[in-house]
Design a protein around this nucleic acid. Structure first.
Lengths: 219, 219
DNA sequence: TTAAGAACTGAATCGTGGTTCACTTCTTCC
DNA sequence: GGAAGAAGTGAACCACGATTCAGTTCTTAA
């Protein structure tokens, strides 16, 4: 048995795999799924088409993985943004929305691909998990607020889903501000006050100061 | 010049055209755009593939027309639902949301196809118009309410967009109640109170009575 | 009845893009 | 150096679905 894979080759293999998934993510972020046929992904990664299939079972397998990784990253960003010890639920939700909104505006095409652009069933399943994750992060905060008496009684899951929808439409969808050339910051402010009222938090005006603060979470 | 189209043939032609677009709408409502290849549309309409192309310039032309007609119908339903002379803005928005929600739940697949499922650019343009129309209907009511002093000052367009997004996510998206087996009526109630708070209306509890009333608008 | 002009038909064509596979090029270890 | 096995290559293959078009059938008006 003259050949045995070694650390060096393992690393090289992993590197190629990552080049491929990075290429896929970049292409998707630039022009959506339609912009990322296997041939283009391979070209961007600097490998042959066949090589893609040596590292991934199929195109949808590759996409599902890319999607999943990107999703996790996004949700983690929101989770961190809402982790404000001692803050009121309203503030925490506002922080989460701002984090989401800033990220979505920065990577508008990717956000759309993640949240809405339809693909094949395998990826669709990942998308469901992403949206659920977003909802759960927000719902958890709402539950805290309700228990603490800061927020009125309400179906936390339903409210959280509506918040996710509102953000998505206002930031990523065709009605979003940058699509119309409007000022993104103003749109975010409007969205935050909308959602703040919606969850029944005593209206807190987000200051430019704390908005910048949460904006920095975008890593 | 032995042949000249007559009323009879014109009518027959129009009938065929309508059979085709109806077939397309039905197939889309059953299984989305992927369920409606030209061959299937032709089969359902009882004509040959070529005939479809005699009546429509292309597949996307056909789809755009079908989409546009369905959209108009939906928006009109919402417009009628919100036309409650003398009612407060909050009630009117609530009525609009209930109309939207009931229609979306009844024709979930079609609603998804209209609001979110991605297709080609020609259809995408129609979708933008649909969402804008929804937003504009709601924004108009909000503007009335703001002017009348019933609602706090806010960016009516931004709020309306967020409302559209919230409805979409809560009713059509993957987080929607029927997707999870929950009680649709409860979800609608949660959504209505969420949006009512969001626009800053003094909370009005929608009664089962007026909910039934607006439900009947679904024509 | 018949010529002229639709309308209709559906098999053939074509483009696109995912997937395969026979072959070449490395790596490793004796 | 050389054998065994991996990894890489890309042209060829294949499925799918939109579009075309030469031939057929139907309508009309003389």
């Amino acid at each position: 048995m003259p050949y045995r894979s070694t650390k060096r080759t393992e690393a090289r293999k992993a590197a190629v795999r990552e080049r491929i998934s990075n290429a896929a993510r970049e292409l998707i972020a630039e022009g959506g799924y339609a912009n990322a046929p296997v041939a283009a992904v391979a070209a961007r990664a600097g490998v042959a088409v066949g090589t893609v299939y040596r590292h991934f079972h199929s195109k949808s397998g590759l996409f599902a993985e890319v999607f999943s990784a990107a999703s996790e990253h996004e949700v983690e960003a929101m989770r961190e943004a809402t982790a404000l010890p001692g803050a009121a639920a309203g503030e925490r939700v506002a922080a989460g929305i701002e984090a989401f909104a800033h990220r979505a505006l920065r990577g508008r095409r990717l956000a759309w691909a993640l949240l809405a652009e339809p693909v094949d069933p395998a990826v669709e399943a990942e998308r469901l998990r992403l949206r659920r994750s977003y909802r759960d992060v927000i719902a958890a905060v709402l539950a805290d607020g309700i228990e603490a008496g800061e927020l009125p009684a309400q179906d936390a899951d339903a409210s959280a889903a509506a918040v996710v929808g509102a953000i998505g439409e206002a930031m990523v969808g065709p009605l979003s501000p940058t699509a119309n050339g409007a000022d993104p910051e103003a749109a975010i402010a409007a969205l935050v006050s909308f959602c703040t009222r919606a969850i029944g938090a005593t209206t807190i005006e987000t200051t430019p100061a704390n908005r910048m603060e949460t904006a920095n979470v975008n890593a």
